[in-house]
Amino acid sequence: MKYFFIAGEASGDLHASHLMRELKKEDPQAEFRYFGGDLMEAEGGTLLKHYREMAYMGFITVVRNLDKIKANFKLAEAELLAWKPDVLVLVDYPGFNLRMARFAKEHSIRTYYYISPKIWAWKTKRVKKVKKFIDEMFTIFPFETEFYAKYDYPVRYVGNPTVDELAVRPNQDETFDAFVSRNQLSGKPLIALLAGSRKQEINNILPVMTDAAARFPEYEFVLAGAPSQPEEFYRQVLKGKEIPIVFNQTYELLQQSKAALVASGTATLETAVLNIPQVVCYKMELGKIARWGRPFLLKIPYFSLVNLIVDREIVTELFQDHCTVDTVSTELKKILDNKSYREKMLAGYDEMRQRLGEPGCAARAAKQMVELLK
Rank of each mutant, 00 (worst) to 15 (best):
K2M: 12
F4R: 02
A7D: 08
R21C: 05
L23S: 10
K25C: 08
E26P: 11
E31T: 09
F32Y: 15
G36W: 05
D38H: 14
E41I: 00
E41S: 14
L47Q: 14
A55V: 12
I60A: 15
V62Q: 00
D67Q: 13
K70T: 10
F73Q: 10
A78D: 15
A82I: 00
D92V: 10
G95Q: 02
G95I: 03
R102G: 10
T111R: 04
T111P: 08
K132T: 13
F138N: 03
T139K: 08
T162W: 00
D164V: 00
E174R: 00
T175E: 01
D177N: 09
F179W: 07
S181L: 03
S181E: 11
L190S: 04
L194D: 02
I202K: 06
P207K: 03
A213H: 12
A224I: 07
S228D: 14
L238W: 08
F247E: 06
T250V: 15
L253P: 01
K258W: 05
A260R: 04
P277N: 10
Q278K: 07
Y282P: 07
W292K: 10
P301V: 05
V306Q: 02
R312W: 04
V315S: 15
T316D: 08
E317N: 07
L318M: 11
L318T: 07
Q320W: 12
H322M: 00
T324I: 01
V328T: 06
K333A: 15
L336Y: 05
R342I: 09
R342E: 07
K344V: 04
E351M: 14
M352Y: 10
Q354T: 14
L356R: 03
E358W: 06
A365M: 08
A365L: 09
